[in-house]
Computed example of a mutant assay.
Amino acid sequence: MSPHDSPSLRVSSESFHDGQTLPPAQRSGKMRAGGKDESPQLSWSGAPEGTKGYAVTMFDPDAPGRGGFWHWAVLDVPAGVTSLPAGAGAEGGRLLPAGALQLKNDGGFHGYLGAAAPPGHGPHRYVVTVYALDVEHLGLDAGFSPAKLEPKLAPHMLGRGTITGIFER
């Protein structure tokens, strides 16, 4: 089954609605976009039978340069977890479920980096994806690059869902 044939998860957020502008909390302070670098609250449902774990990513496909920009990647979220609180992506991950692992974002640290479209670059899409996986652990460590994650997720993907926030300055 190709990833495009995977059953859809329903993904929602108390922090923003699909297709709407990201609020200041989900924008970057570190990259001077007037924000707090707080990962959004997320909830998901509709995981296919056999789901043993989840991965969550946030990616900006509109970022300048090759390959977009990875803002967040969380692996090994236990199957019994169907939501993450706002701020779960803080460095150190103390609000993440036990066993979950954050990869280093393209800003260079393990955690969530808020939206920070370059001034005058137009609207950017920040795509949050939740992947339902057939394994509890992907066997990757915190040093693994999110840019190389898709081929590691694809053979284990049972379903996925997205929610997209927009930001420009």
Rank of each mutant, 00 (worst) to 15 (best):
L84E: 05
L96V: 02
G108S: 10
V77T: 04
A90Q: 15
L84A: 10
G99M: 13
Q102I: 08
L95Q: 15
G108Q: 10
L113I: 11
N105V: 02
Y112W: 08
P97R: 07
L103H: 05
N105K: 14
G108A: 11
V77Q: 00
V81A: 07
E91F: 08
D106C: 08
R94H: 13
G114F: 09
G87T: 12
L84T: 09
A88C: 09
G92Q: 13
G111D: 11
G108M: 08
L95F: 11
G111V: 09
P78F: 02
R94M: 08
R94Q: 14
G111I: 12
L75M: 08
V81K: 03
T82K: 09
L84R: 01
D106Y: 05
P78V: 00
G111P: 07
A98L: 09
D76C: 03
L96R: 04
G89N: 09
L96H: 03
G93Y: 05
L95Y: 14
L103P: 03
R94K: 14
A79Q: 13
H110R: 15
A100M: 12
D106K: 11
Y112E: 09
L101D: 03
D76E: 03
H110V: 04
A73V: 00
G108P: 09
L95G: 04
E91K: 15
E91Y: 11
L96Q: 03
F109N: 10
V81C: 00
G89Q: 07
G80I: 00
V74C: 13
V77E: 02
V81P: 06
P85Q: 04
G87Y: 01
A88N: 05
D76L: 02
T82V: 13
P97V: 08
L84G: 08
V77R: 00
D106E: 09
E91N: 10
L113R: 11
A73H: 02
G89F: 14
D106P: 07
G80M: 00
L113G: 10
V77A: 05
A90Y: 07
W72V: 00
E91M: 14
L96K: 07
G107T: 12
V74K: 03
L75Q: 01
L75W: 06
W72M: 14
T82F: 01
L95D: 13
L101Y: 06
S83H: 15
L101I: 13
A98H: 10
V81S: 09
Q102W: 00
Q102E: 14
P85S: 13
G108W: 11
L95M: 14
A73D: 06
G114A: 11
A90P: 03
N105E: 04
L84N: 03
W72P: 01
L95P: 01
G108L: 15
S83E: 13
S83R: 12
S83F: 07
A86F: 12
H110Y: 15
A100R: 12
V81N: 06
A86M: 06
K104Y: 02
G108F: 08
G99F: 10
L96Y: 04
G114K: 07
G92F: 14
S83Y: 06
L103A: 03
P85W: 02
A90H: 12
L103S: 04
R94G: 04
